[in-house]
Simulated assay, not measured.
Amino acid sequence: MSSSINIGISEDQRQQIADGLGRLLADTWVLYGKTHGFHWNVTGPMFNSLHGMFDTQYNELWDSLDEIAERIRALGMPAPFGDSTLTKLASLQEASSIPAAMEMVQQLMSDHEAVARTARTVFDIADGANDQPTADLLTQRLQVHEKTAWMLRSLLQN
């Protein structure tokens, strides 16, 4: 027995929001993997501080994957999964090598800014559909990505 979804958002709007959230999920997935890999491989004089910072960041990203995917499911749509599917949907590139520590910081700063831009594109769709739960999730994600980008950017300044 199947029951239809009647939450005040049309199926077409729910699909558009879910598609946008799928892109956010994909960007978050790639950023999670890159941050975790950089955590494992960072070296140099800032090892201790960067290793710890990246640890905090990848754990936060990991937790957010569930929140984003579960919102897609609450909208009645399937959440994309699998590394090849998510990397195709993502606007971010996976790391192709192990860069020097400050290049890691630069890449992660740029990637957090890119994820914020992805979240903003979905925000307009959610707002237009009167989808407050998605807008709230996006606001929370924007706060995290913008604050993280600022913290990483601060490390790059003299």
Rank of each mutant, 00 (worst) to 15 (best):
M1A: 13
S2D: 07
S3K: 12
S3T: 15
S3F: 14
S3V: 15
I5L: 14
I7K: 13
G8Q: 10
I9M: 04
I9P: 07
S10W: 05
S10H: 05
E11Y: 10
E11T: 13
D12L: 00
D12I: 00
Q13C: 06
Q13K: 14
Q13A: 14
R14C: 06
Q15R: 11
I17G: 04
A18K: 04
A18T: 08
D19S: 12
L21C: 10
L24G: 11
L24H: 07
L25C: 01
A26S: 07
D27A: 06
W29P: 08
W29G: 04
V30N: 05
Y32Q: 13
Y32T: 12
K34P: 15
T35K: 05
T35P: 15
H36T: 05
H39S: 11
V42P: 12
V42C: 04
G44A: 09
G44D: 11
P45T: 08
F47L: 09
N48E: 09
S49V: 14
G52Q: 11
M53G: 13
F54M: 09
D55W: 07
D55R: 06
T56D: 15
Y58Q: 10
N59Y: 11
N59C: 13
N59S: 14
E60D: 14
D63F: 08
D63R: 06
D63A: 13
I68S: 06
A69E: 01
I72N: 02
L75Q: 01
G76L: 03
M77P: 07
P78L: 01
A79E: 09
G82T: 06
G82F: 02
D83I: 04
S84I: 03
L86S: 03
L89Y: 05
A90S: 15
A90F: 02
A90N: 04
L92M: 03
A95I: 01
S96N: 14
P99K: 00
P99H: 02
P99V: 02
P99N: 03
A100M: 06
A101H: 10
M102D: 08
M102L: 12
V105T: 04
Q106A: 06
L108V: 00
L108I: 00
V115Y: 01
A116C: 05
T118C: 08
V122Q: 06
V122N: 06
F123W: 13
F123D: 15
A126K: 11
D127G: 12
G128Q: 04
A129V: 04
N130L: 08
Q132I: 13
Q132P: 10
Q132M: 10
P133I: 00
T134P: 14
A135T: 15
A135V: 14
D136A: 09
L138F: 00
T139S: 06
Q140C: 03
R141T: 07
R141D: 03
L142R: 01
L142N: 04
V144E: 07
V144A: 12
T148A: 08
R153D: 15
R153L: 08
L155Y: 13
L155R: 11
L155I: 07
L156R: 07
